[in-house]
């Protein structure tokens, strides 16, 4: 069953990423250059609407809480994001979209995948050194595994646990969906 779900959801995700245009580095590079904000609108709307539905499911108990998985916040997340952003900008691929681009017949995507495998092994081999030299990089921020809207799950912290989670999530969702709607197609700079 796990295998069927992996193939079905992974295949669907790949198909959808391809159809939204995320497998095409032209679309990603021009989003980052603020020349074609199609994908920014897509991502904003997807985050906002999925977040709202997820918190409705959490509030009504219709989702298995063990499926919720919150990643830790630490300063390395920001530094990692900065390094990620440089590579993302020059190549126009990210770890998921390069697979979709490659499946769609793009040869440059294969070189991104190969580079990615090298980057991942460099990190794997240097982790021990990074961790011992810069231990503060991995120290949790605001408790680490923390969300803005409280999930109600004990092992994860909530930054706004005095306000009903659904209200917080709804405000965030509206901001993201309005942002998606109002964002222009391009910004001239």
């Amino acid at each position: 069953m796990t295998i069927i779900l992996a193939l079905a959801i992974g295949g669907l995700f790949g198909f959808v990423l391809h159809r939204v245009g995320a497998g095409n580095p032209q679309n990603l590079i021009n989003m980052l250059r603020l020349q074609d904000l199609h994908l920014a609108k897509v991502i904003l709307f997807a985050i906002g609407s999925s977040s709202l539905v997820l918190f409705v499911l959490l509030a009504t108990g219709l989702i298995n809480e063990s499926h919720i998985s919150i990643k830790a916040a630490y300063s390395g997340v920001i530094f990692g994001g900065l390094i990620f952003g440089i590579g993302f900008a020059i190549a126009g691929y990210c770890p998921g979209t390069c697979l979709v681009g490659f499946g769609g017949g793009r040869k440059d995507a294969l070189f991104f995948v190969l580079g990615g495998l090298v980057g991942a092994i460099i990190f794997t081999l240097s982790y021990s050194w990074i961790n011992s030299t810069f231990p503060s990089l991995f120290e949790g921020i605001a408790g680490g595994k923390t969300t803005i809207a409280d999930t109600g799950i004990e092992k994860f912290g909530g930054m706004m646990d005095s306000i009903p989670a659904l209200a917080v999530a709804a405000v965030i969702a509206v901001v993201f969906m309005l942002g998606a709607w109002k964002l222009p197609k391009s910004i001239n700079i």
Binding site: G76, G80, Y93
Partner: peptide, 22 residues
Amino acid sequence: TFIGGALVLFGARLAGGCTSGH
């Protein structure tokens, strides 16, 4: 793209996730 891929995956592993996960 090769260099981009190396930077992206090094950064993603330092951050603990990527565009999909984070």
